[in-house]
């Protein structure tokens, strides 16, 4: 009886909300919350407007609070397209058979993670991570989000491979700041002594003059790996018409609004495929994030 009532309740509230919005199918997309929210909302509203114009359907962006929420929304078919990181993309495509990576940023072919340190630690930049072992051991360290490729997966991989220890054993304290901007702010403020973040976020903030270079500096750069990509569900053509997937892909590849690209920041989008992200999948399995 309880279930019945709940269903009734759902049905009535659904009726109300769908009446307002269901006139035409809305194409919904999301993105992993890897940066400050206002910036994301600004950026992706621009993308929504652009796609809506190009595709001639209603396009809506919904912000989420975690990487997993982005993956779940994609998996649950509540969003049909997502701007994922390397790891979240791999997770999402494993969970949704038929989905594919259709485009990535020019920079995403060879993405990097920067290790940064508060200058009060006196750690000097180095060419290889192993030579920093003594200086890094016992420091406090922050990743970005738990599900981030550049903020968690790759740095953890390199820490484990180089020092042959789990991060929580190697460092005195390990935290998850939540996103790259916050990692930068926390290390800059000295809350954590060392951190790892997306190199694009660092470069953009540096260019905009938002970093106190007397307080924080890059101490090591990882080798390149593939990262962010647009991933789309396999069943969009059934819902939005034949060739829809191809049209989305073309629209993304043709995006040349400099201001919009600058906000990512990417110089443009190029085609991508699921196979491009095999290295990420292997790494994730290796450190036990993927089963």
């Amino acid at each position: 009886m309880a279930l019945k009532l709940i269903r009734k309740f759902v049905a009535s509230s659904l009726l109300f909300v769908t009446a307002a919005s269901a006139s035409a199918e809305t194409f919904v997309f999301t993105a992993i919350p890897d940066e400050d929210e206002t910036r994301l909302v600004e950026r992706f509203r621009g993308v929504a407007d652009y796609l809506s114009e190009q595709l001639d359907v209603d396009v809506r962006y919904i912000p989420v609070k975690s990487y997993a929420a982005a993956v779940s929304a994609f998996r649950n078919n509540q969003v049909q397209l997502a701007w994922f990181g390397g790891l979240s993309g791999v997770q999402a495509r494993r969970l949704v058979p038929g989905s594919e990576a259709i485009a990535q940023g020019v920079e995403d072919e060879a993405f990097q993670t920067y290790f940064i340190a508060n200058t009060s630690t006196g750690i000097d930049p180095a060419e290889d991570l192993a030579s920093l072992e003594d200086q890094l051991r016992g420091k406090t360290f922050t990743f970005g989000s738990k599900g981030s490729t550049s903020g968690r997966l790759m740095p953890e991989f390199h820490i484990r491979e180089t020092f042959e220890e789990a991060p929580e054993d190697f460092f005195a304290r390990v935290g998850f700041s939540g996103n790259h901007t916050r990692t930068l702010r926390l290390v800059e403020a000295g809350t954590y002594e060392v951190g790892a973040l997306n190199f694009q976020v660092w470069e953009k903030e540096l260019e905009n003059g938002n970093i106190d270079t007397n307080a924080v500096q890059v101490i090591w750069e990882t080798p390149a790996y593939p990262d962010y990509q647009w991933t789309i569900r396999g069943d969009v053509n059934e819902r939005f018409g034949d060739g829809f997937k191809e049209r989305v892909k073309e629209a993304l590849l043709a995006l040349d609004d400099q201001e919009l690209l600058e906000s990512f920041p990417r110089s443009g989008f190029i085609p991508a495929s699921n196979e491009d992200y095999e290295p990420i999948r292997k790494t994730a399995e290796e450190i036990g994030i993927l089963d």
């Binding site: 009535s12 509230s13 659904l14 109300f16 769908t18 649950n76 078919n77 509540q78």
Partner: peptide, 27 residues
């Protein structure tokens, strides 16, 4: 109150079944 909850995103009931019959089954 029910009319002020916001619209959110539509429920896909298949997901519910999947959650209970697959997702939470130990790997």
């Amino acid at each position: 109150a029910p009319f002020f909850l916001g619209e959110g995103l539509p429920i896909v009931w298949g997901n519910v079944e999947r959650f209970f019959t697959e997702d939470i089954i130990p790997a």
